[in-house]
Write a protein that binds this DNA or RNA. Sequence first.
DNA 1: TTGGACCGACCGACTGGACGGTTTGTTAGC
DNA 2: GCTAACAAACCGTCCAGTCGGTCGGTCCAA
Lengths: 223, 223
Amino acid sequence: MSTERGADPRARVGAAARQAEATKEAILQSVARIVSEEGADALTIDEVAKSAAVSKGGVLHHFPSKEALLLAAFAHNLDSFEDEVARLEREDPDTPGAYTRAYLRACVECFGPSRDDCLAFLHQFRSIPSTVRLVRSYKERWMHRVEQDGLNPAIANMVRYVGDGIWLASTAGETKPASFDEMVERLLRLAGAAESGGRQDTAGAAAMPKQGVQNDDLETDGR
Amino acid sequence: MSTERGADPRARVGAAARQAEATKEAILQSVARIVSEEGADALTIDEVAKSAAVSKGGVLHHFPSKEALLLAAFAHNLDSFEDEVARLEREDPDTPGAYTRAYLRACVECFGPSRDDCLAFLHQFRSIPSTVRLVRSYKERWMHRVEQDGLNPAIANMVRYVGDGIWLASTAGETKPASFDEMVERLLRLAGAAESGGRQDTAGAAAMPKQGVQNDDLETDGR
DNA sequence: TTGGACCGACCGACTGGACGGTTTGTTAGC
DNA sequence: GCTAACAAACCGTCCAGTCGGTCGGTCCAA
């Protein structure tokens, strides 16, 4: 879990600092809960404050604007998704396509109870440039990982699109169709057979660092 | 094209009525344009009115609320997508999977210039019940068509998820990855080979009528 | 055919509420 | 006592929806 938001230079400690960190976490969880249970339109700062048992000023203290709040929550969501993919990848033997299979399995989990974590931030894609950038960097990490995965990129892309489609369906309230499991099985088999185009060079693995919330343009803490 | 919005009982004629219909069409097109070019947040009634060269009162005259306007535009969008699928299906020999292949091809077109028509109405899914119902009826029509398609439902579902994923990627501003065409080819082949579970009975084809904008709960015209 | 009654299409100023953000205060840890 | 972590009242803007009104067709009786 990447709850520690990347080594703050002026690392603070103490009871107060820990309390503040807990408050931030509560705020982010409230955002996720509201969006998933009541829809994106219900996401107001006042509502977040009430849900997190903090005042409006408290929310604005940690996240200087609603945009910053959205961005942080979005990043938090993407991070935990990537953590989950990484966890699933570790459970799978190191054959070509391991990452892609883990990615698919993580997407499938969206239909379970953890669906509440799937934030419906789509509506912000176009209007918030920083969100667009965040999604782009997320996709670049994905491409980077796929490159090392030694799988036919056409298959990897297919899996990604299916994953996005599953996510979309789940946020729209759909339930699993009868043939769902068979479909997943088929895809896993596709991603399991080393169709490959030959393993690309694996040098520079993990060369692309995870960015998390740290964005150049939008500080999420203090001023 | 289903531009004729289902036989109005008290069928009016005359120049005024035609003008009114043209105005409604202009309003709906403005909604589509604004959402695709400026994002869902920029969609205000004032903006729609300005773009359609109509007054705010004029917009509200045809669509009694913003919700009704959104619903009508969404239905309009879904309708034209289904029209496109139907057109593509007619160009494909009548083998099992014809519908599914047409569906995929229609989704692929989202990456082209017609992407502007892909309304980003997702953000309304949860908050507007009538929209949820609309999407559900749309999916039921899809299921109905797939049933007649004589294809393995797992494949059909896979294609649908990929289509949704493509749509999602396009609204997020992504471009086609290098392996895109190969992926589509693979899927088309999957949907072309009659993996089947045997053709289901074809009786009652088109038994499920298209609903279009006519909803029980939300009139879009008059008062 | 014409004139008046009627109606739908459309206009635009106005209102009331919601909501993002600011400012000023208060408390507690270091 | 200085600063971070909040609280709470407050402000300004934006925006959906209302409402009184205008204008051009349409219809029908004389």
